[in-house]
Simulated scan of single mutants.
Amino acid sequence: MRKVCFIMTVIVCTSCLAQQNFTIDIWPNGAPNSNQISGEIQKETSQGRIYLTQEAKMYVFLPKYNTTGGMVIICPGGSYHFLSMENEGRRLARWLCEQGIAATVLQYRVPNKHKEVPVSDVRETFAIIKGHAAEWNIDPSKIGIMGFSAGGHLASYHSNTYTPESKPAFTILAYPVTTLFEGISHEKTRQNFLQNVNDAEEVAASSPVQLVGLQTPPTFIMVSCDDELYICSQLYQEALHRNHIPFECHVYPTGGHGWGTKDRFLYKKQWQASLLFWLNSVLNADKKHIDINHTLEN
C-alpha cells in the first residue's frame, strides 16, 4: 500500500511540475520515529493552521526561472503545537518564487516531547531536495533554512546540529525562540520540545544560543523590539558575534510577535527588501540581479 502511495505521489508531483508547485510526502515508506500523537489526522483550519501534525510533507514552490539556484526551507511557527502554514509558510514561499528563489514549506511533525521527530523531518527534507536538485534547478550548495518563532527554534537548532549532508548554506530567523531556559524562553514551546524541562543538561543541549560555533551558517534575523521574546533574538545575535559568524539583524519598533507576512505589519515592505538584498548577496545572485523595486511594489 505504501509503495502504491509513493508511486501516486511521484505521478502527482510530475504532473504538477509544469505548474511549479506540488506536494511531497517526506516519509512515503513510513517515518523512522513517531511523536506518539494518535487519532484522526488534523485538517488545516480556515486560519491556515494545522494542529498536532502527524504527517511530514513538503510544499514545493519552484519559480519559472531560478535566478539564484537557491532554495529556502521554511519552518512555520506555532509553539510546536500547531503550524501557521499560510501566514508563515505558503504566502512567503509564493513571494520568494516571484523573486526567482525556490522555496519549500515544511509541514514538520510537532515533537510532543520527541525532539528527534521534527529534526529528522528537516534532515530528510534536505536529502529530498538534493536528490531532485538537477530536476528542480537547485544548487545543492545553496539550500538554506528559515523559521518563525518555534519554527525559528527548529531552524536555529538544526543550523547548529546538522549532519554533513544537511548543512544549511544560510539561516533566516523571524522572532525565533533560540533558548529553552525557563524565564527567557516561550514556555509552551519549551514544554512541547523538551522531554524533561527540569533537566539542565537537556535544556542547554536544546538551546541554540548554547550551540553556536564556528560552523554556524551566515544568519539573518528580524524581530520587533516590543516582542516579549525579543531577548531570544538578542542572545542569538550576541552568540553569532562572539563566534565571528556573519549576520544581519533588523529590529522594528513595533509589531509584537507573529506578524509573519501579514499586511498589517507596518514594516512588511522593509523586511522583504532587506531579506531579498541579503539573500541576493548570500546566493551570489549578482549575475542575474533581482529587482528590489519590484519587491517593494508587491
Score class of each variant (00 low, 15 high):
Met1Arg: 10
Met8Thr: 10
Thr9Met: 10
Thr9Arg: 05
Ile11Cys: 11
Val12Gln: 15
Val12Ile: 15
Gln20His: 14
Gln20Pro: 02
Asp25Cys: 11
Ala31His: 03
Pro32Ile: 09
Asn35Leu: 09
Ile37Leu: 14
Ile41Pro: 10
Lys43Gly: 12
Glu44Pro: 00
Ser46Trp: 11
Gln47Val: 06
Ile50Phe: 02
Leu52His: 11
Gln54Thr: 13
Ala56Gly: 10
Ala56Asn: 06
Met58Leu: 13
Pro63Phe: 10
Lys64Phe: 08
Thr68Asn: 13
Gly70Lys: 01
Val72Ile: 15
Cys75Ser: 10
Pro76Asn: 04
Tyr80Gly: 02
His81Gly: 08
Leu83Gln: 07
Met85Asp: 06
Glu88Ile: 06
Glu88Lys: 08
Arg90Lys: 15
Ile101Phe: 05
Ala102Lys: 02
Leu106Met: 07
Arg109Lys: 09
Pro111Arg: 06
Pro111Tyr: 02
His114Ser: 07
His114Leu: 05
His114Asn: 13
Pro118Asp: 00
Val119Gly: 01
Val119Ala: 06
Ser120Leu: 07
Glu124Lys: 15
Thr125Ser: 14
Ile138Glu: 03
Ser141Met: 05
Ile143Pro: 01
Gly144Tyr: 00
Ile145Pro: 02
Gly147Asn: 04
Ala150Tyr: 01
Asn160Gly: 12
Thr163Gly: 01
Glu165Asn: 15
Thr171Gln: 06
Val177Gly: 06
Thr179Ala: 07
Thr179Asn: 06
Glu182Tyr: 13
Ile184Leu: 12
Gln195Phe: 09
Asn196Leu: 07
Val203Lys: 00
Ala205Cys: 08
Ser206Val: 07
Ser206Arg: 03
Val209Gly: 01
Leu211Gln: 09
Gly213Gln: 11
Gly213Phe: 05
Leu214Met: 08
Thr216Arg: 01
Val223Cys: 14
Val223Thr: 15
Val223Leu: 08
Arg242Ala: 15
His244Asn: 14
Ile245Trp: 09
Pro246Tyr: 11
Val251Trp: 09
Thr254Gly: 08
Gly256Trp: 05
His257Asp: 08
His257Lys: 08
Asp263Arg: 12
Arg264Tyr: 13
Phe265Ile: 02
Leu266Gly: 13
Leu275Gly: 04
Ser281Asn: 15
Lys287Cys: 07
Ile290Gly: 03
Ile292Gly: 05
Leu296Asp: 06
